[in-house]
Simulated assay, not measured.
Amino acid sequence: MAPAENKTTANEGVETGLGDAVDMDTFNQILEMDDPGDHEFSSSLVFGFFEQVEETFESMDTALAKKDLDQLSQLGHFLKGSSATLGLVKVRDGCEKIQRYGKNENVDGSAEPDSELCLKRIREALITVKTDYQDVERTLKRYYEKSDKDMGDDD
C-alpha cells in the first residue's frame, strides 16, 4: 500500500467514510475533544443532535401545517446552527433555505412576497433536508459502531 492509504487514525478513517455530507475540519475538531481510547464526548454530541433533529422535524411539520413561516424560519435557523457545529453541511445548507423562505426571502436573500411559494419551497427543502439527515445519521452511527468495536478490542 502507498503510505497515504495506510493511515490508521480514527480521524483519517472517518474522513474517507463521510464523503461530502460532513465538513471534516469541523468534525475533526470535535473528535479531538474525545479522550484517547473513547469517543464518549463526540458521540454524546452527535447522538444528542439526533434526538434534537427528530423533535425539530416534528415542530417543522406542525408549523408547515399551520403555514407559520416565522416559526419555520426560527426552526430552520436553530437546526442550521446545530448542524453547522457538527460540520453537517448538507443539513446546514438545507436548513438555511428553510430559514430564508420562512422570512419570505429567496436563497440569495432577496425578498419573496409570495408566501405560498415560500411554503412550497419549504416543503421541498424539508424533504431534501430529511433525506440528507437520514443519510448522515446512518453514516455517523456506522462510524461510532465501528469505532466502539475497534476500541473494545483492547478490553
Results as ranks from 00 to 15, higher is better:
L117T: 14
Q134C: 08
E54W: 06
N106K: 13
S115I: 05
G17T: 08
A65K: 15
T131R: 14
D153W: 04
R100F: 07
V129I: 10
K103F: 03
Q52C: 06
T131C: 02
G94E: 12
K97A: 14
A21T: 11
L88W: 02
S83H: 09
E55M: 11
K67G: 06
G76L: 12
T62H: 08
E15R: 14
C95R: 06
V53Q: 08
F57I: 13
L79N: 11
V53K: 00
G87T: 02
K130I: 02
E112G: 05
V107S: 13
V136D: 09
N28T: 14
P36E: 15
D132R: 10
D68A: 11
F47Y: 07
K130M: 11
G17I: 05
L86S: 00
V14S: 07
F78D: 12
Q99Y: 09
M151G: 02
A10Q: 10
R100P: 08
D148N: 14
E137N: 06
K90Y: 12
S147H: 02
K141N: 08
G94P: 14
R142A: 12
N106V: 03
N11P: 00
D20P: 03
E116T: 12
E96M: 14
Y143L: 10
M60P: 05
N11I: 08
V53H: 05
S59H: 04
H77Q: 11
E5M: 08
G76H: 04
G102P: 10
E32L: 07
T26F: 03
L45N: 03
E124A: 10
K141A: 08
G102N: 00
L79W: 02
K149G: 03
A63L: 11
L88C: 00
A111W: 05
D61N: 11
D154K: 10
C95F: 02
D70P: 01
L69P: 12
L119F: 09
G37S: 01
F78M: 01
S147W: 06
G13A: 07
K149H: 02
A4R: 11
V136A: 08
Q99G: 06
L119C: 09
F49A: 00
G48Y: 00
D68Y: 05
A125G: 07
D154G: 00
L72R: 09
Y143H: 07
Q134K: 14
Y144I: 05
A10E: 10
G152H: 09
L79F: 12
R92I: 00
D20L: 13
A63E: 00
T9W: 12
D35F: 02
I127R: 14
D23G: 07
A65G: 10
D25N: 13
Q29V: 00
A84P: 05
Q29R: 07
R121T: 06
K120Y: 04
V14L: 11
K149N: 12
V22W: 09
M33P: 01
S59I: 02
D153M: 12
T8P: 07
F78N: 13
D108M: 08
D132F: 01
R123C: 14
S83E: 04
Q134E: 15
A111D: 15
M1G: 15
G37T: 05
K141C: 01
S115M: 01
